[in-house]
Design a protein around this nucleic acid. Sequence first.
DNA 1: TAGACGTAGA
DNA 2: TCTACGTCTA
Lengths: 166, 166
Amino acid sequence: LKWMDPGKVVGSVCGVQIGDKFKYRALLKMIGLHSQPQAGIDFAKIEGKNLAISIVDSQRYLNVSGSSDTLIYSGQGGHGLFGSKSPPKDQQLVSGNMAMKNSMDKKSPVRVIRKVASFGMDVFVYDGLYIVDRYTDNKNAEGNIEFKFHLKRIPGQPALHSMLKW
Amino acid sequence: LKWMDPGKVVGSVCGVQIGDKFKYRALLKMIGLHSQPQAGIDFAKIEGKNLAISIVDSQRYLNVSGSSDTLIYSGQGGHGLFGSKSPPKDQQLVSGNMAMKNSMDKKSPVRVIRKVASFGMDVFVYDGLYIVDRYTDNKNAEGNIEFKFHLKRIPGQPALHSMLKW
DNA sequence: TAGACGTAGA
DNA sequence: TCTACGTCTA
């Protein structure tokens, strides 16, 4: 009746390689890649501080991928999603956003999972470890504060595109 | 990349016995018991008509279980759920509700899955095949039309309580 | 208890 | 595009 729980791990997950694909968010949890059923930022309390350990880029926020080793990830909260009905608000430096800042301060690695379309189907692909380099908290088009976390891929990992076998 | 899809079946599902328990709705789909991720009524087009093939009683509507072989199931739509924020409306005889009526007319069996609490956890239990006996479309407390489908358990099936082994 | 980058089908 | 008896974590 109870699911095996792989728990929360910082850094690489044993047995999971770059390019591994998963159909459902629920699978990410079972494998131990990302525990949150919907939230994009997963974090864990490490030595008394919440550190971000994985993020899922489902392209529902206005994230920007620069080169293949750069990712700009929008903070959560404030209803900044596409098609959200709730009135927009300022994002707050709490919860997942605070965890992202803490990971930045500690230079702690963050797993990145990207939702990509493949043959008309969506899949979640593991893209390896990133470091949060810096963040901004500018106002967006509606005038509300929105965090943007700038992540850099840790060098030495195989390129994602070279690991994609469909 | 693709899930095995057991497809939609009317009546019993091969390999599934009364009393079988499932933790998640997603499992009901994988097994072929109920394809809808949230909707309570699943249906399929049979000989040109949509017939209800399975329902999930999650107790979010005001359903009434009479004796162990009777079930009164509320129609869908009209936001008749507990804690719904949307303004209530009249339910319409469309979609799942229409499928329930069609199953009634054809005396086509409907699988019933019940969400029950067990040791503080929720589980979905397969309860066997029912026939839609009749339905009403009275106004509820708020003055909106609400369907009530009266289902009778097909005789000869083992009692659910006798199959429950926790 | 409420928030969160869900998901399939109509 | 939107609805639908979802589901987990904090």
